[in-house]
Simulated scan of single mutants.
Amino acid sequence: MGKKILHILFALLLASTTGCAVYPAVQVAGGAMTGYDAAMLADEYIPRSHVEGGGLTANQDKMLQRRLRERLQLNGMTVSAHVIDAKAYLVGQISDRARADYAIKTASTVQGIKTITCKFYPLTTRREARKDQRLHAELAEQFKKTLRLRGADLRVEVIQSQAILLGKAQNYSQKTAAVAIASELGDITQVIDYIAVKVPIADGDEVASK
């Protein structure tokens, strides 16, 4: 564990001196803004019992999510933050690449976060923002009244008419239903699926699978 932490610290130090990010740009999220999918921290930062299964995972996620949101807010970042199975998801609109890098660096300071996945978009117009709010309300209402989705922990973000689905479904049928509902909603142009699925294991606990 000690060697891994030293390697991470060395990478961060190298990045600060060279000006290069330690995470790769892997997906375009509209316009000139680039999205990131970055593995920042080692699994050993938190006990395995807090990573997998039952109430421990839920309580750990709530604590990490609260810390992450507080830290982003203190640093002037307005992106949405979610934590699922100790994995952080940052979603929102950011003005430039430097601010995107800063959001990721801020999130990486929260001890216990295993990975950081980001979906960032360029700033939108007020008209587009109002449309996104309407689509968000419609999609959230559809999820709420769909019986097949009861018991699932689903979260929705809508940016520039794209629906970003996060959370945890009880099975793959729920996951498929959520994606289908979002895809069929008028004016939604794309669905980005970050929904994990609970998979039962031998001792009765559950782990999440993408």
Rank of each mutant, 00 (worst) to 15 (best):
N75E: 06
D153C: 11
Y194M: 09
A107R: 01
K119C: 03
K175R: 15
L6Q: 10
K145V: 13
G186I: 12
S108I: 05
G204H: 08
L64E: 02
K3R: 15
S183L: 06
R69G: 04
A140Y: 00
A32Y: 13
T57R: 07
Y121Q: 10
Y36V: 08
E44R: 14
R71E: 11
I164L: 09
G167R: 05
R127F: 09
T34Y: 13
Q73K: 13
I192M: 03
V191T: 07
S108E: 13
L12R: 13
A39P: 08
V110Q: 01
V51D: 00
E52H: 13
L165G: 04
K145C: 07
R69D: 04
R127C: 08
E184I: 09
R48Q: 10
A107L: 08
S183N: 12
P122K: 05
Y23I: 09
A100I: 03
K114S: 09
V110T: 07
A152P: 01
S209I: 14
H136V: 04
A86F: 01
C20Y: 15
V51A: 09
Q133F: 15
A180W: 10
D101T: 06
S183E: 09
D193H: 08
A178P: 02
L64A: 04
L149C: 05
H136N: 14
F10S: 12
R67V: 00
A202E: 15
T125S: 12
A100G: 05
A169C: 11
T146K: 02
L72V: 05
G151D: 04
T115Y: 10
K4M: 11
T34G: 08
D203S: 11
L166Y: 02
K175P: 01
M63Y: 12
E52M: 13
G151E: 06
D37H: 08
S80P: 05
L14M: 09
P200Y: 08
G76I: 00
S49H: 13
G76K: 00
L185Y: 10
T17N: 03
T18M: 06
D101N: 10
L139C: 03
K168P: 00
V191I: 03
V79E: 00
D203E: 12
G55A: 15
K114V: 06
L72T: 03
L123I: 10
S95E: 11
V83F: 00
A15L: 07
L12P: 02
K168Q: 06
R148I: 05
S161F: 04
R66F: 09
E206C: 06
I195P: 01
I84T: 06
G30E: 03
V199Y: 10
Q60E: 15
